[in-house]
Write a protein that binds this DNA or RNA. Structure first.
Lengths: 155, 155
DNA sequence: TATTGTTATACTCTATAACTATA
DNA sequence: TATAGTTATAGAGTATAACAATA
């Protein structure tokens, strides 16, 4: 792989057109993740907390299901949920069907924060993609869908 | 914002073509970062360690310069470099021009590991993009370059 | 016995504030 | 005084192993 693979390697001086596809995808991923991380931090959230809240927008899963979605060990979920609970963003509810289980759901405060984060992220991403043509928007969606499909097939 | 914003939200069932540009970019970024993280873990590296080693491939910066590149506080660098040093991947050298400073460089072992990581990452990304047409490869590079430029302009 | 979740423990990563040594 | 770097400390995030309670 050519020059970088990661940001921080190029100082901004390497906006070269010879950049390969791998570097393009890697650098783009760091750009988007950096934006996500900064907007999350502005809301006093970490990236994993944003993901947690995002999952809970339309579900009320148990701890194991959450762990699967986030690709974490179940033991890592306990602290993650507890910290979010301490901030009043989520709540643990006893599972009605299984005395061992708990269900995790958003509180109204958690939903508000999630919505505010999402709105701000949309705003920032819109600013970033403002200069793209309609054709380029279409390209992005198609390329992303294609690569996600390829990844799913490999798994 | 539509449905997700993050992976783990869609179960794989939401490969829908109505996905917006923001979601496309966010999901693509999680795909690439997930791959980076997994390949890094296969080499017993974290993402930030990969970035550190990547920076050192063609430089021998001081701690402050490293902190700037990685967007970390200088105090965070001490432990990061110390842990890498303990594993024999990098070394601290006294700065020849400044009695206070140290320069950080890759060891031969660190360079080997960096090269192995990079080769594996290339292999995995190549597998992912294997089915893309030449035109699509060009599109990715152009889109990435354009968005990185837009981000640079905003900063 | 198997499953759900927590606890105990240890490590990485990160920041803030205070410090040392050199410039 | 200012700068380069470390230390002390605190906290988030993660995993492994052992545990409790329920199925």
């Amino acid at each position: 792989m050519p020059p970088s693979h990661t940001p921080g390697l190029d100082d901004g001086r390497a906006a070269d057109p010879l950049q390969g596809t791998v570097d393009a995808l890697v650098q783009l991923s760091f750009l988007v993740q950096g934006l996500l991380t900064r907007v999350a931090a502005d809301h006093e959230l970490s990236l994993v907390q944003v993901r947690l809240l995002g999952i809970l927008r339309d579900r009320r899963p148990g701890m194991l299901e959450l762990a699967r979605h986030l690709d974490l060990d179940k033991s890592s979920m306990t602290g993650l949920v507890t910290r979010a609970e301490r901030r009043g963003l989520v709540e643990r509810l006893p599972s009605p069907h299984d005395g061992r289980g708990v269900l995790v759901g958003l509180t109204p405060l958690g939903r508000e924060l999630t919505d505010r984060f999402t709105a701000e992220m949309d705003r920032r991403m819109a600013a970033l993609t403002a200069s793209l043509t309609a054709a380029e928007h279409t390209q992005i969606r198609a390329l992303s869908a294609g690569l996600l499909r390829a990844a799913a097939e490999q798994a």
